[in-house]
Design a protein around this nucleic acid. Sequence first.
DNA 1: GCCAACGTTGGC
DNA 2: GCCAACGTTGGC
Length: 136
Amino acid sequence: MNYWLVKSEPGAYSWDDFTALGRDHWDGVRNYQARNNMMAMKAQDRVLFYHSVKDKEVVGIAEVVREHYPDPTTDDTRWVVVDLAPVEKLPKPVTLQQIKADERLANIALVKQSRLSVMPIKEEEYDIILSLAYDK
DNA sequence: GCCAACGTTGGC
DNA sequence: GCCAACGTTGGC
């Protein structure tokens, strides 16, 4: 089991949009590093759903339900999508501020590489983020 | 709304 | 193959 974090601007595509659909393909990734991360995703991997720009917080957990396949929104064969389904909404969103304030999370890509939209998360880091979501 | 960081493109 | 110009992302 691997762990990931994906970003979306809530104005463009929010957690609520995602849960309303129940399942959706994650399209529009046009960055090689992010694409490579998606290609490494396996069914059942856990994916943190992060709202960028406006909220700047992790809002929910999703699950990979279909591994990568060609992006149906483009003819360009370089790009792929995965299918994700919501698992649960976090009882309390974990803000970027909280993540930055926690020294155990100092090395996650969300902080180090702010422009990457699909990134791997270590299991320990995933656990820490969930503990922040559930403890407070 | 601004701008820093960074990825991509294209001229040479 | 280098690098300047340009576009985009996302935090502030």
